[in-house]
C-alpha cells in the first residue's frame, strides 16, 4: 500500500529526515514516535502532500504521490490543531469538506456519537477547543478512507470523548485500514498500536512491535523503553 523509498528532507542546513525507508502493506495501527523535532510531522506532511521531499519517493498503491493529487481521496487526515474559518457553521464545514473531496460521506452517526447535534448551526469561531477537535474528528472519520493519518488526535478531548475516539480507531482497524498515528501519550500508543516506528534525528531508529521494543531495551513499559533510548 505505502512504500517509502530513501526519503530525505532538509530545511536549509537542518536535516529533518534522512534516508527513511519502509513499507506498510497490511492494515493495522502504526505509531510514529520520536522526541520533539525528530521529523514525525514532517514525514506525515510529506505523505499528505503538504511538504515536498528533498529526494526520495513515496508510493501509494504503486503510484508516486508527487505525480497526482488523486491519491489523497484515499487518505483521511486529522490535523494536530483544529482551526476553521470563524464565520462558517459546523454544518457548513462538514458540507464543504464533503464537497471538496467529492466522495460519499456519512457524518450523522459521528455527530450523534460526539453529541454535536446542538452545535450544528453554531459558528466555528465560537466553539471551544475540545468541541472544535470533535468537529475535526467527524471531518476525518466521515469518509471511508483506507488510510487514516492522526496527528496528536487526543489534544483537548475529555475522557468520555477519548474513549469514544479509541473505539472509533479500533473499529476502523477491524475494517482492515491502515492507521498512522503520532502521539506523546505513551499509554495511548501502548493500548492501540500494533507496530511502532521510532524516529531519532531524522532516521528510523527502531521499527517493530511494542513488545520487541521493550525486549530490546529491557524496560517494563513503552514509556521507560523510550526514555532508555533517549537517555542511555
Amino acid at each position: 500500500m505505502i512504500q517509502v523509498k530513501n526519503l530525505t528532507k532538509s530545511y536549509g542546513k537542518l536535516k529533518v529526515l534522512e534516508d527513511i525507508h519502509f513499507e506498510i502493506e497490511k492494515g493495522g495501527i502504526y505509531a510514529i514516535l520520536g522526541p520533539n523535532g525528530s521529523g514525525k510531522t514532517t514525514f506525515l506532511k510529506i505523505l499528505l502532500g503538504m511538504v515536498i521531499p528533498g529526494s526520495g519517493e513515496i508510493h501509494y498503491n504503486g503510484e508516486d504521490i508527487l505525480k497526482s493529487h488523486e491519491y489523497r481521496k484515499h487518505i483521511g487526515y486529522l490535523p494536530q490543531i483544529a482551526r476553521f474559518p470563524d464565520n462558517l457553521t459546523v454544518k457548513e464545514i462538514i458540507h464543504m469538506i464533503a464537497d471538496v473531496r467529492e466522495i460519499d460521506s456519512l457524518p450523522e452517526p459521528l455527530i450523534a456519537l460526539f453529541g454535536l447535534d446542538s452545535f450544528l448551526d453554531k459558528k466555528l469561531g465560537t466553539l471551544s477547543g475540545g468541541t472544535r477537535q470533535k468537529v475535526n474528528i467527524v471531518l476525518t472519520f466521515m469518509f471511508d478512507s483506507p488510510v487514516i493519518v492522526l496527528d496528536e488526535p487526543t489534544a483537548g478531548l475529555d475522557p468520555v470523548s477519548l474513549i469514544k475516539l479509541k473505539s472509533l480507531i479500533n473499529e476502523e482497524k477491524e475494517k482492515g485500514k491502515i492507521i498512522l498515528i503520532t502521539s506523546h501519550i505513551m499509554s495511548l500508543v501502548e493500548e492501540l498500536a500494533d507496530e511502532v516506528f521510532f524516529l531519532l534525528e531524522g532516521s528510523i531508529y527502531f521499527q517493530g512491535t511494542i513488545d520487541a521494543l521493550r525486549r530490546k531495551t529491557a524496560a517494563s513499559n513503552l514509556e521507560h523503553a523510550i526514555a532508555k533510548i533517549l537517555e542511555p
Partner: peptide, 12 residues
C-alpha cells in the same frame, strides 16, 4: 487560515 489551509492541502 493557515491551519485550515493545511487541512485543505490534505484534500484531493
Amino acid at each position: 487560515s493557515r491551519e485550515f489551509t493545511e487541512l485543505l492541502l490534505a484534500q484531493p
